[in-house]
Design a protein around this nucleic acid. Sequence first.
RNA 1: GGAGAGUUGCCGGAGUGGUUGAACGGGACGGUCUCGAAAACCGUUGUAUCUUUACGGGUACCCAGGGUUCGAAUCCCUGACUCUCCGCCA
Length: 419
Amino acid sequence: MIDIKFIRSNVDAVRTAIRNKNEKADLDAILTLDENRRKLQFDFDNLKSHQNSVSATIAAKKKAKEDARVELAEMSKAAEAIKQISAALNAANFELEKALLTIPNLPQPEVPVGLDESFNEVMKYWGEKPNFAFEPKDHLEIANQNGFLDLPRGAKISGSGFPIYTGKGAKLERSIINFMLEYHLQKHGYEELMVPLAVNRKTMTGTGQLPKLEEDMYHIDLDDLFLIPTAEVPVTNFYADEVLSYKDLPKCYAAYTPCFRREAGSYGKDTKGLQRLHQFNKVEMVRFVEPETSATALEEMLANAEAILQAFGLHYRVLSLCTGDLSFASQRTYDLEVWAPGMQKYLEVSSVSNFGEFQARRANIRYKDKEGKVRHLHTLNGSGLATPRLMIALLETYQQADGSFRIPAVLQPWFNIKL
RNA sequence: GGAGAGUUGCCGGAGUGGUUGAACGGGACGGUCUCGAAAACCGUUGUAUCUUUACGGGUACCCAGGGUUCGAAUCCCUGACUCUCCGCCA
């Protein structure tokens, strides 16, 4: 959420940001609501102030056993007016709050301006596209040949997009998750969190999924709970409504969770194999930092995510997302795209974002700085990484001429773990 | 799911419907003292919002939302959460 005071004094900047992000938000309506609210607040305060002082007089007179009927009569009427204006003020605050939730975060100045993904900037490439002495197969063929996946039965049980990993495939998936998670814990200093997979409405609003993305999420009507689309949601809200100390910062958490996405509106797009799923596994990194350090933290988290791909020896590239491709809540985002030699394309496996104080403001996460001032902190998160497309890249990169799959060296200890 | 108890400031813990932003204790911070520290003593210890160039001032906030009242931390209703007991269950 953007501070209303900031909006008030930076109308043009906010307007531009909304346009560049292809968002719809009625800024003028918000300014009017704000105007109205402040007027009501002013009136309410004055009436209350008067009421308080007269009430004190009544109290004093009663104590002195004097007649207070004049005051009581006046206050009886005033109370009615206060009740009305109080209701109006509450409504105004509610409306403004609701409207403010539809304003996206402002992109940082470094973010390339552009309508869609074609304006994203490639920051760098790492490694090389692998060469094969044979025609590389796509991951689905490799998976099927080796008995790693059973997508038809997943579809039977739940629907398309709910994969079943079978036998060695399941173990491979689990090895990947364990490896990535431990890597972040041991080499990058993150602390592990195991979190709820179903969260309430307030939590979803805190990180910015609501109100915009309600259609993209699985919802349990009976309890008004949502299945998380990413661990970012429960992990970032870990500190909702709390005030931390600057001494506690930065806080760095990593969490493995399944993620659930309805992918509404993307039917028929990239559906082959594991490219786009309703349920998938992901290790997520989240940081809570002092505002001054969030830019550096973003670069570190990007490096943390890259380290995984490098450990796997996979060719990838880093993109800086343009304004039109930035998420609603993000100020600046890097995407990691891994090369899938069978499908001959780059696939997004990670998104690393700096949200500034946007989420902290929504979720009410603050900290007390060195001067003792209470401020909103900054939040960041990054996938480290999402498994399905990583699995695609691994299967396709480490396939052998006979269609078998060679477990990458770094995964061997995790895959061949002995009791 | 049924029955009961509770939710006050950083923490513990008072609080009769009328100077209660909230006693008291602890912690933390600043100061005096000291070579330094401890102890002791003195002081400080909110958040939001409106207004003001500023100093300051107003208002709200004792889990949340309603209600009663001239006036509510204090009375009533609803909800959330925590704890105890019973039932059910991985």
